[in-house]
Design a protein around this nucleic acid. Structure first.
Lengths: 191, 191, 191, 191
DNA sequence: CATGAATGAGACTTCATTCAT
DNA sequence: CATGAATGAAGTCTCATTCAT
């Protein structure tokens, strides 16, 4: 697909507007306008407004997941190194795709049977992936063993996402923020 | 006001439906129906659908904040004990008011100038409160000192909220989950 | 009826608000509020909002018509004197009851079968009354005879009302304005 | 735009219904129905019900004013001839656009900040135009000089409009009615 | 007499989607 | 491929009126 194809322009317009205004406060007309095409054209490329919205989210998450999976499989890394990579990839994603991240945060509001399953599956994939790394780490004596790996994976992923607060982290320096989170994660805050 | 006043029934119906379906997928007619009153009655008690939605959210957060503040002021507690209380109060809130929590998660989608300011203020109150406790803890040699207290407060609050995932924690035993989070928070996950 | 009975207060409130805002932009709640009574009370004294509106108009016009009729019957007056009185009584009415006058101007917008008949009858009474005076004047050689009396009556009444434009006439001095209209009416504007 | 475009049909339907029933007693649904289009179509062509209503009124008055102005500028006419033309143009307008005239009479009921200014400006234009003609006439010794020209202009315009009463003038013969009004205006009704 | 909570019909308006061109 | 006029279902909100207290 060319960089400036109408389809691509529509996707970019949709990301921009959905992120700024939310799903329900963005009209198909606005998206078409922003992309510089007619309203009807949207329906040549996408089945519906919902499919356009969810399609963006799903491909965003898939992209992130692919990267996460790839890193996890590099076997000459320690579990801690892998965890560090996971944190960094998330922050990179937050930084590079902050509009899509905003859409994801909002997406729970527009329930859609078909896509909800997909999202759940992707979330589970993420957790499973991290869970496996943690288990490796526990077996390799890198991580504490008295916490169930899945519970821990959930906590970690939640911490990364939940603590992402654009008004606090500016995310100008991803490396630095990665280090901070990793340090807390590993050693805790007790003096 | 009696427990079963129409106003109270409307609020309960609104909480239930807003949580299940989100703001935009819930109609005023549905709320009235669920409460067993006429559509117009909603407007006798509330100025608008928005005000009904935000009113619930604001009073929910205010209730939590009040409890948090009260606990923070009990001076014969160590900072760690206070942190433990904060985690537990949040988990209690997640458990008891899970529908309101869902509404809060969704609330970024329905921007409203008036209420957004209020929400921001409440969030800041929360962070400030925890921030103060952390500073106490740092001064009293309970917490590490090489992390800025506000940054840490943001991370902790984000972790608590972000890790709340109904499909993982069942929150049947709040005490247990509180201990888990507190332990990770304090000592980290490194073996 | 006492000066401050609730009924009277309601009527005064209605006149004030209907004149300022028009029929459709005035709510029964506002009227009750302005009168300092409960909304339900309006319906004890009046059958409906419409009846309240039209009742005021009809009694306003009836009051004017009665005065007009009385003057017309004073037989030792010339037709010109009677015409002068009619003009003056109208201007007095415009001045004293300007809110009711405004309501009358608006009243064509709220058609009501029952009251429309009444209004038509009152308008006809007015025209007939003046028409008779003109005929007297024509017979007594006071007025030109080559114009049909009813046509003339219509023109005169229309002129008085139509030329009443609060932003032009201040109606501070009714006598003066009466003289002006009468002079034009009698002698025309030709040099 | 064709004569039978949906926009034109909507305007005609609106004029018919607004004139018959008034602004507040006419629904957008009725207008769409009368025009044979869907309800939503009204909003494709017009911003709101108000804008549709006022748009019709404003363009009606503008059309009349343009004609009036054009006539006033024909310089080889006497002031009396110009006055005669003004009366005739008004009666023509009353005859041809009687529905719009009815809308104008009703228009004070639907106050609208934006349009009220416009209407006031148009009314002032009308008065100023006639006022200038009268002044010419006074200077040229055609009209009496002891009445202020603007006061007179207001009276004349008011008389024309006020005396327009469909149940008296049938306006079948505009020329004849013009003559009648002009004669009264010029020479008065005194024998 | 008086109240005001409650009703529900109905108004205006929005907007995703379609389809003839 | 692309357009944009047209649709109509659905949503929020108003308000005259009623009635139990």
């Amino acid at each position: 697909m060319e960089k400036n194809s109408k389809k691509e322009r529509l996707i970019q317009a949709a990301i921009k507007l959905f992120a700024k205004q939310g799903y329900h406060n963005t009209t198909v007309a606005e998206i078409a306008d922003e992309a510089g095409v007619a309203k009807g054209t949207v329906y040549w490329y996408f089945d519906s407004k919902e499919q356009l919205f969810w399609g963006i989210i799903v491909s965003g998450i898939e992209l992130l997941n692919e990267k996460l999976l790839r890193e996890a499989q590099i076997s000459n890394k320690t579990a801690i190194e892998k965890l560090e990579t996971i944190i960094r990839l998330h922050l990179d994603f937050f930084k590079e795709s902050k509009n899509i991240v905003k859409m994801i945060q909002d997406s729970s509001v527009t329930p859609d049977k078909h896509f909800n399953k997909k999202i759940h599956k992707l979330r589970k994939e993420s957790i499973d992936n991290l869970s496996k790394i943690i288990k490796e780490g526990q077996e390799g004596d890198e991580f504490v063993i008295n916490i169930e790996s899945e519970e821990l994976a959930n906590f970690i992923l939640g911490s990364i996402g939940g603590s992402y607060n654009p008004s606090v982290y500016k995310l100008e320096d991803v490396e630095e923020t990665t280090d901070l989170i990793l340090k807390i994660m590993l050693s805790g805050i007790k003096a």
